[in-house]
Simulated scan of single mutants.
Amino acid sequence: MTLTLSDTTPIAKGGERFVFIHPDNPDWLIKVWHERFHKKQEKRVPIVIKFLRLKRYWSLLNELTEYLAIRECAKPNLNHIQQIVGLVDTDLGLGMIVKAVKKENGELAPTTEDLVKNAQYTAEHDKALDEYFDWMRDTDIIIRDFNLNNLVWDELAKKFVLIDGIGSKPGFSLRSFSKAYNKKANFNRIQKFKTRMKKALS
């Protein structure tokens, strides 16, 4: 069965994909990688993209691989990344079904940037953010894009959840082969995130 999404307005548009509410389950979202992203990557890293077996789906595959890697690591903890439910065929291409992160009233969870902009960021969030950083160090997760817009606040569980930017860049990634290198890369991303937070809060 192929779901028709082309006549539906996405609830979010990112640099890589559109996000739709699943037509059969409002607690699920469907992420579909859009054509602009594929063309941009072909221009940015043409040699790398040329030799990929599945050119259109490297980002989807890397996110799925990272999700499975966290499941299999010494300290499996999926609480801080968006839960993957499965894959689905759509008229816009293959989509990834994920569990929506929501607020108590059923609305989608706010991003960290939303919390700051709306003056809702509190000491509770600050403590939870430090816990997220600890989790990020413990699990050796590979994150290629870590910013205030892809980290959302799970109001029900009182924790931060990463919903985007998971997995390595296309092609060969040293971070996949060296835990030490990946730890350093994650440390740098955490420091940059803290700098952005400090600037946003000032």
Rank of each mutant, 00 (worst) to 15 (best):
H125K: 04
D27F: 10
P170Y: 09
F146K: 05
D130H: 10
P23M: 00
S202M: 14
E107Q: 14
K127E: 11
K13H: 05
K102P: 06
I142P: 12
K39W: 00
K192P: 00
M136W: 01
F172V: 12
I81G: 06
N118D: 11
P26W: 08
T139L: 05
S168R: 13
A200K: 14
Y57L: 04
G14P: 07
G106I: 09
Y132W: 13
Q82E: 11
I141C: 08
I81W: 03
A119P: 00
V98S: 05
W28A: 01
E16K: 10
K127T: 13
L174Q: 07
H22Q: 03
I142C: 12
N150S: 03
K127W: 04
E124C: 00
W153Y: 15
N77Y: 04
E107M: 09
F51H: 15
N188S: 11
A100S: 11
D145L: 08
R56N: 12
D126R: 14
G171P: 06
K117C: 09
L87F: 09
A12R: 02
P23F: 00
K102C: 11
F37N: 10
I190N: 01
R144L: 03
W135E: 08
T195R: 14
P23N: 03
E63N: 07
I21T: 09
V101R: 04
N150Y: 02
K183M: 07
S202C: 07
L129I: 09
A200N: 05
E16M: 11
F51E: 09
D134S: 10
E155C: 09
E63M: 10
K103H: 03
W135G: 06
D91S: 10
G171H: 05
T195L: 12
A74I: 06
E113S: 12
W153M: 04
S6Q: 10
R17C: 09
K43E: 13
G15A: 11
G15W: 03
V48Q: 02
S202F: 04
N149M: 07
D114V: 05
F193W: 04
T139F: 07
G15S: 12
T122Q: 10
I70L: 15
N150L: 01
A185N: 14
A180D: 13
I47E: 15
K169C: 01
N105P: 08
N186L: 07
I142N: 11
Q83G: 01
P46L: 08
A100T: 06
S202G: 15
F18Y: 15
N147M: 05
C73W: 03
T90V: 05
L5I: 06
F51T: 12
I84H: 13
A69T: 13
G167E: 09
K99T: 14
D89H: 13
I21D: 00
L174H: 02
E63C: 05
W153C: 06
E35Y: 10
E16C: 12
W33P: 00
K117Q: 14
H125Y: 06
I141M: 12
R189A: 12
E42T: 05
I21Y: 01
R71F: 06
F177W: 13
E113H: 11
K103Y: 02
H80W: 08
L115N: 10
T65N: 15
H125I: 04
K169W: 10
L78F: 07
F172C: 03
D27G: 08
K159F: 03
G93I: 05
P23C: 02
E113F: 12
L156R: 15
